[in-house]
Design a binder for these strands. Structure first.
Length: 466
RNA sequence: GGCCACGUGGCGGAGUGGUUACGCAGCGGAUUGCAAAUCCGUGCACCCCAGUUCGAUUCUGGGCGUGGCCUCCA
């Protein structure tokens, strides 16, 4: 990062403002994001944090020599158990199935795997150790085979979500199990029946509650204090509040996450996405209908903290945006991109300003415009590099431009590339002999087959209709 | 009920106390054999009501609407 590069600022839920990001150790930046509970397919809303924080990691890697990104997989949970029992299989059958699907779906969106992808079931000893420390420190207690966090023992509880404890209790919707000392206490460990999966512990055979796993995995892989903790806004309370309490209290008050980031929701036609409304869009289905890159761009077209409106127009629009960007790159096909770092300042500044991806995209279109009018090959080589390098930070524009136009919609036509080229040659001959009726007939026939023709100074190009 | 976000043109979506966001779609023109792509130009906006201000979409208050959390859901 040179002297003219502005600082990265991130909106920190802890402080409710944009804070300048200063890592604890600039040689080793640590980041944790809450991953999926693997018992079903991921929907487009689940994909949002994966994509948003994937961009953040790309930006961080540009700024710092080492970034360790951990995203967990929750593979022990009651809904998983129910599904396994319904199918009569071990929970690992369920969790491995959906974890594989999750990785594949996110991969289709250009989301790179995290550096570490820990499983809750592989972190049980660390969870038990943490609970023992919490009990020893007076922040947790055992009751009827459960281990519960003693919320009143931690006066700062509620600081992240800004919820005073007494107020929450007044909400009166908190489950008040008889073994709880206080209504707000939450479960760290609970007993398992013989039919339920469980692990031996000092409190009998049981299984972990939800929140403890993240605390334990962070401690195990990243240490007591991490730089960035991310997740969906819905996790702010109670999940993250509880993580914070557990980690702080088991580490003698050492700071937990220094920057808390939360992404907004995806709305469907201005209403929420829910199974009962039947408007849940699964990533698994979307990638059959549209290029993963277009889905990714749709998610990046809005700022990650804002609500994102999804409707039937969103994907076609995103695809059209990519057509324009790739179209500009394709026009630069005759020059070789320079290898210097030429990411424009305006583009980078947008991303450094709390990941303003819509602004960054606008800058990308500025580059495309310049590329479309540029005549100097030196400038064009620069712009080609700028487009691709900037696109890399967003996780787009990394494929060959012709591949985008000719290959992305594979399946939209029965013709193969050779057949298309042959038709184009035939049309070229017809045009050369001024037989425009025949030329148009060929073009229309190709169009009917889903192939669109573009004549240019360097010959005829084609693309598959979206 | 409590707490918290958001409400921008046909659609998605930035941003700002007074100046073009950007993209998609539309319209006009250039270019093209005709198209497409590209370029040039262009129409369309800031939920409602008060207040602060010389001036508010941008600040304050109220209202309405949508959404989130408070029930181990991104």
């Amino acid at each position: 990062m040179n002297a003219t590069t502005p600082d990265l600022t991130l909106y920190n839920t802890l402080t409710r403002q944009k804070d300048r990001f200063v890592p604890l150790d600039e040689k080793r930046v640590t980041m944790y994001v809450c991953g999926p509970t693997v018992y079903n397919h991921a929907h487009i809303g689940n994909a949002r944090p994966a994509v948003a924080f994937d961009v953040l990691v790309r930006v961080l890697r540009r700024l710092y020599p080492q970034v360790i990104y951990v995203r967990n997989i929750t593979d022990i949970e009651d809904k998983i158990i129910e599904m396994a029992q319904a199918e009569g299989v071990e929970i690992s059958v369920i969790t491995e199935r959906y974890a594989d699907i999750y990785r594949a779906d996110m991969g289709a969106l250009g989301v790179a795997l995290p550096d570490v992808e820990p499983l809750a079931t592989e972190t049980i000893p660390e969870m038990i150790a943490m609970m023992e420390r919490l009990i020893a420190a007076g922040h947790a207690y055992e009751a009827e085979g459960h281990v519960l966090f003693d919320v009143p023992s931690f006066p700062d509880y509620g600081a992240l979500s800004r919820r005073p404890m007494d107020e929450m209790i007044a909400g009166a919707r908190v489950e008040v199990a008889p073994y709880k000392k206080s209504p707000g206490d939450f479960v760290l460990w609970k007993p398992s029946t013989d039919e339920q999966p469980g692990w031996e512990s000092p409190w009998g055979r049981g299984r972990p509650g939800w929140h403890i796993e993240c605390s334990a995995m962070i401690e195990k892989h990243l240490g007591e204090t991490i730089d960035i903790h991310g997740g969906g806004i819905d996790l702010q309370f109670p999940h993250h509040e509880n993580e914070l309490a557990q980690s702080l209290c088991s580490h003698e008050g050492a700071p937990f996450a220094r920057y808390w980031l939360h992404n907004g929701f995806v709305n469907m036609n201005t209403e929420k996405m829910s199974k009962s409304l039947g408007n849940v869009l699964l990533v698994h289905d979307l990638i059959e209908a549209a290029p993963g890159e277009a889905i990714r761009l749709a998610l990046l077209n809005a700022h990650y903290r804002q609500p994102l409106e999804w409707n039937d127009d969103v994907l076609p629009q995103s695809k059209a945006m990519l057509d324009r960007l790739y179209g500009a790159i394709r026009k630069l096909g005759d020059v070789t991109a320079v290898t210097d770092d030429v990411v424009p300042d305006a583009f980078l500044e947008a991303l450094l300003d709390d990941l303003n991806t819509p602004k960054a995209l606008a800058e990308l279109f500025v580059m495309a415009k310049k590329a479309n009018v540029a005549t100097d090959d030196g400038e064009r080589a620069q712009l080609k590099a700028a487009l691709v390098q900037s696109g890399f930070l967003l996780g787009i524009l990394q494929q060959d431009a012709n591949s985008w136009f000719e290959g992305e919609a594979a399946g939209a036509t029965d013709l193969d590339a050779a057949a298309i080229e042959a038709q184009i040659e035939a049309r070229k001959a017809a045009r050369a002999s001024k037989d425009f009726a025949e030329a148009d007939r060929i073009r229309d026939a190709l169009a009917d087959a889903g192939v669109l023709i573009e004549d240019g100074p360097e010959g005829t190009k084609w693309k598959l209709a979206g």
